[in-house]
C-alpha cells in the first residue's frame, strides 16, 4: 500500500450486485445449468433494442449543432449529461471525432470499462480478449473483419478505455443528409459506429 495513487487507483471494483450476479453465474455454470454463450445471446437480443440509442442522440445532436459539437469535444462528460445521460459510476467521457484524416477505435479488455449510459451493454465481442489485443496490433485488419475498409492513408487511432475514462466515437456524418432532423440522423448512428468498428449508415440504407 505504498503507492502514490492510493485513493482511486483500484483499477477494478465490483459492486455487491455485480459480484452477486457473477457468484450466481459461477455456481450455475459449475453445475452445468447455464451456458455463458446462451446468456450472451439473450443479452444481445435486448441490448440491440435498448442500449445504444442514447449515444446515437448525442451524435445526432453533434452533427446538427456546431456549438454542441464544440462542447462535446471540450467536455464530453458535461455535454452528454446535459442530454440526461450520466454514468452511474461517475466515470468521465471523452468524445473522439472521426475526420477525413483519422478514424477512431475504442478498446478495453474489461466489461467494466464501457460507457453504458450512452452505449448500453457491451457487445459480446468487445469483451473478448482477442478483440483488444488484435485491435491494438492490427486495427486495420480488425476493421476489415467488421466490414470496414478504410483508405490506406487514413490514420487509425486506438483508444484504451479505463475505469475512469471512457470514449465515445463520433462517426462522420454521411453525405446526403442535409436538412435531416436529429431523430432521423440518430437512426443512422449504429452502436458499432460509436465504438469505431463501424461507420454511420448511409441515408439510402436507413430503415
Amino acid at each position: 500500500m505504498s503507492g502514490d495513487h492510493h485513493d482511486h487507483h483500484h483499477d477494478n471494483h465490483y459492486s455487491d450486485m455485480q459480484a452477486r450476479v457473477r457468484a450466481l453465474e459461477t455456481v450455475l455454470t459449475e453445475k452445468g445449468l447455464i451456458d455463458p454463450g446462451a446468456l450472451d445471446a439473450i443479452v444481445e437480443t435486448y441490448e440491440t433494442k435498448v442500449g445504444p440509442r442514447n449515444g446515437a442522440r448525442v451524435v445526432a445532436r453533434a452533427w446538427s449543432d456546431a456549438a454542441f459539437a464544440d462542447w462535446l469535444s471540450r467536455d464530453a462528460t458535461a455535454a452528454i449529461a446535459s442530454l440526461g445521460y450520466t454514468g452511474r459510476q461517475g466515470e468521465h467521457m471523452r468524445a473522439v471525432f472521426n475526420t477525413n484524416a483519422t478514424h477512431n477505435l475504442v478498446v478495453c479488455t474489461l466489461c467494466s470499462c464501457y460507457p453504458w449510459s450512452v452505449l448500453g451493454l457491451p457487445p459480446v465481442w468487445y469483451k473478448a480478449p482477442a478483440y483488444r489485443s488484435r485491435a491494438v496490433i492490427d486495427p486495420r485488419g480488425v476493421l476489415r473483419e467488421f466490414g470496414v475498409t478504410l483508405p490506406e492513408e487514413k490514420r487509425i487511432r486506438v483508444w484504451d478505455s479505463t475505469a475512469e475514462l471512457r470514449y465515445l466515437v463520433v462517426p462522420q456524418r454521411p453525405a446526403g443528409t442535409d436538412g435531416w432532423s436529429e431523430a432521423d440522423l440518430a437512426g443512422l448512428v449504429t452502436r458499432d459506429s460509436m465504438i469505431g468498428t463501424g461507420l454511420a449508415r448511409l441515408p439510402e440504407t436507413a430503415a
Binding site: V21, L39, Y46, W116
Partner: peptide, 18 residues
Amino acid sequence: DPVFAEPWQAEVFAITVH
C-alpha cells in the same frame, strides 16, 4: 422491451430467462 441501467441487470435477467 426491458430496460437495463447496468450490465449486471441484463445478466441476471438473462440467467433467469435461461
